[in-house]
Design a protein around this nucleic acid. Sequence first.
DNA 1: CAACATATTTAGCCGCGCCTAAAATATGAA
DNA 2: TTCATATTTTAGGCGCGGCTAAATATGTTG
Lengths: 227, 227
Amino acid sequence: MMTGRAAGDYTAPVEDYLKVIYEIERRGSAAGTNDIAQQLSIAPASVSGMVRRLADQGLLEHERYRGVRLTESGRRVALRTIRRHRVIEAYLTHALGYAWDRVHDEAERLEHAASDELIDRMAAAIGEPATDPHGAPIPTRWGEIDEGPHLGTIAELVPGDRCRVVRVSDDDARRLRYLGEVGLIPGAEVVLVSRAPFGGPLALLVDGVERAIGPTLASHVMIETSG
Amino acid sequence: MMTGRAAGDYTAPVEDYLKVIYEIERRGSAAGTNDIAQQLSIAPASVSGMVRRLADQGLLEHERYRGVRLTESGRRVALRTIRRHRVIEAYLTHALGYAWDRVHDEAERLEHAASDELIDRMAAAIGEPATDPHGAPIPTRWGEIDEGPHLGTIAELVPGDRCRVVRVSDDDARRLRYLGEVGLIPGAEVVLVSRAPFGGPLALLVDGVERAIGPTLASHVMIETSG
DNA sequence: CAACATATTTAGCCGCGCCTAAAATATGAA
DNA sequence: TTCATATTTTAGGCGCGGCTAAATATGTTG
């Protein structure tokens, strides 16, 4: 019967810790107990205990009161989990007709249960995409990832700027849903028409269609400027 | 982040207990602590504790020292888990090219993580099959299952009998692999040519090809007699 | 009916991953 | 430099789902 996880695997909580630590490190900041706790929606005190276990397993290094850093081994596990997550997201949208705002939660559970073989078969079945539906790069099966250059967001444009949406934050289904409704999906062409003062709305042309969005939302849409 | 299980769900161990209890009951026998423990590869003492928790949750009834019986509620959960398992198995073979002896372990893990929506989409994508790759019936999304009449096995045939393979045991990958090699898959036409005495081999015609198998293997191939 | 074999349960334990409350440490401002 | 505040860790606890060893119930058999 064997209810275990995929071969050679870590527990789901362990994979989740490593994933969020990887993301925090990627943002530049050192991963502190508090950040980790917040990302995982658990109490900071709980993180201390787990961090110790992860350090014991050689997945990260921990300097008391100073934070945490992934080891090479921890990074590998994190990237494998991220690959699983993103391949699953891509597969669900391309092969099974999922809306892009419904894939995150499903992937969040499946990423801990899928074998490497399944992930590779899924990726092959949809043509080995380079990114997930939100534009996030998919690590290769060898743990390489092309994080690309640091991306700006629509919030940082000045009127007249033209750009292309590369990626959007995927951590809020309602936001994703709305972004989809206004056409702000990876690949969309955007021109900032004007920006109202005092945190007011931004007027955009999204693939030629006029739209107005708030600055917070705009900061979740990552772009590359296109001429 | 939320590493939980699918919405409104039970833990993976709980689903596994209910599944094996369902199967034991289906075989006719009352589900005793020992049977359950053996099916789950855990110590009998561990079963006692879990059985109490399951009874507290109203998933089964427990008569001390006498065994266990699923309640209607427990049966529903068991059948939903079995549906998940079998739909996943069918999907992996039909949509992703899995060999039929590799799907069981994968399904064993995914069945606890997949949402109802995913299962239904998978089933739809492959045309709502009635059985899994091993011939086991797939419960409907409403918890109905057609267990069909009690099936005989090749082991019970007498020379000259002709039959069709309906279903094979799926709990041993090596056995499955071998059954596939000799063509004993659901749908195959089989004639028992002769049977050696003292537990010796059975000579078969499998879709016209001569084969010899042992009686134990034969007892894992379920059939319906066809004229 | 007594004695034994077998099945089941209880008792007591452990690790995981979470919790709250309290103590320790670091940091920035007065 | 010292103190207030924020962060982190420790202490102690809990439920789950396993374990082993020991006790107890069942039922079979001489």
